[in-house]
Simulated assay, not measured.
Amino acid sequence: MTRLLLAPLLVALSTAALAQEAPNPLAPSPTWDALAPDILKGAVPVPAGEALALQAPTRAEDAATVPIHLVQPESAPWVQDLTLVIDENPSPVAAEITFGESMMPLDFELRVRINQYSDVRAIARTETGEALMAGAFVKASGGCSAPASSSDALAGMGEMRLREFGLAEDGRREAQVMIRHPQFSGLQRDQVTQLWIPAHFIDRLEVRQGDEMLFTMTGGISISENPVFRFRYTDNGAPGFQVRAVDTEGNVFEQTLPKTPPA
């Protein structure tokens, strides 16, 4: 009998502990209160609910490459613009992304750096002008100052690759675009000289299929080294993706990545 009484109590205590361990990213915080006026510019976002989910690991395996997955159900409104914010990063706005209609409903993943335990939030503007907010709390630290994964991080800079995953369960195609770039944050040291490495990252990216825009991104230091973007899209029959990236040193990288023809 005692065991039967203790079981629900233990469940309740565990649930309470988990709630304390995983803060609600949509709740007010001193950091967000300070950031919000500049980021929202007068918009008043509402919790996205089922219209948009931001999925992220509760505890990141690698703070320098944390996967952020943005997902919508089939009936969700078209997200035209989205701002990705990592509250506690030195530069909180990780990316501003515009999505074409062929990307709807959104199923989009990218990798970011997280410098310390932080709320990560997506502020989305839909085709109706409504502002939505989704978020997650991620335990990670040191991502923005983590050294490059290779001793020659500049080797092959600008090279691009396409990986295709065929048809997703919703009938759309799924692809992954990979770009080789060190994405220096300005917070890393050269492992030999111990001098600071100047910031050097892709700040503008465009991905199209034929003449149709799939997405554009204005990025900052929070986008991970060798950026990877995985997404679902409605195929318009174009033979490939046109990818154009511009970095903060003025380098322009352009490449056409041929698609595999549909079976």
Results as ranks from 00 to 15, higher is better:
Met1His: 12
Thr2Trp: 14
Pro8Lys: 10
Leu9Asp: 03
Val11Phe: 13
Val11Glu: 09
Leu13Met: 12
Ser14Pro: 00
Leu18Trp: 12
Gln20Leu: 15
Gln20Met: 13
Glu21Gly: 06
Pro28Phe: 11
Ala34Gly: 06
Ala36Arg: 11
Leu40Met: 05
Lys41Thr: 01
Gly42Met: 10
Gly42Pro: 06
Leu52Cys: 04
Leu52Glu: 07
Ala53Tyr: 07
Ala56Ser: 04
Thr58Arg: 15
Thr58Cys: 04
Ala60Phe: 07
Ala63Asp: 00
Val71Lys: 14
Glu74Trp: 04
Ser75Phe: 03
Val79Ser: 00
Val85Phe: 02
Asn89Leu: 10
Ser91Asn: 13
Ala94Pro: 04
Ala94Cys: 11
Glu96Tyr: 12
Glu96Ser: 15
Ile97Ser: 01
Ile97Met: 10
Gly100Tyr: 00
Arg111His: 15
Asn115Asp: 14
Tyr117Thr: 12
Val120Glu: 03
Arg121Thr: 03
Ala122Gly: 05
Ile123Glu: 11
Ile123Pro: 06
Ala124Ser: 07
Glu130Asn: 02
Ala131Gln: 02
Met133Ala: 11
Gly135Leu: 05
Gly135Arg: 03
Ala136Val: 09
Ala136Tyr: 02
Ala140Ser: 03
Cys144Thr: 15
Cys144Phe: 08
Ser145Ile: 01
Ala146Tyr: 13
Ser151Val: 15
Met157Pro: 00
Met160Ile: 03
Arg161Leu: 13
Arg161Gly: 14
Arg163Phe: 14
Phe165Asn: 08
Leu167Ser: 12
Ala168Leu: 10
Ala168Phe: 08
Glu174Gln: 15
Val177Tyr: 08
Ile179Asn: 02
Ser185Pro: 08
Leu187Trp: 13
Gln188Trp: 03
Gln191Leu: 15
Thr193Met: 07
Gln194Phe: 14
Ala199Lys: 13
His200Lys: 08
Phe201Asn: 09
Ile202Cys: 05
Val207Gly: 11
Glu212Tyr: 01
Thr216Val: 11
Thr218Met: 11
Asn226Gln: 10
Pro227Arg: 06
Val228Gly: 07
Val228Ile: 14
Phe229Pro: 08
Thr234Ile: 12
Ala238Trp: 05
Gly240Asp: 07
Gly240Cys: 05
Glu249Trp: 14
Asn251Gln: 13
Asn251Thr: 10
Val252His: 05
Glu254Pro: 01
Thr260Lys: 15
Pro262Asp: 12
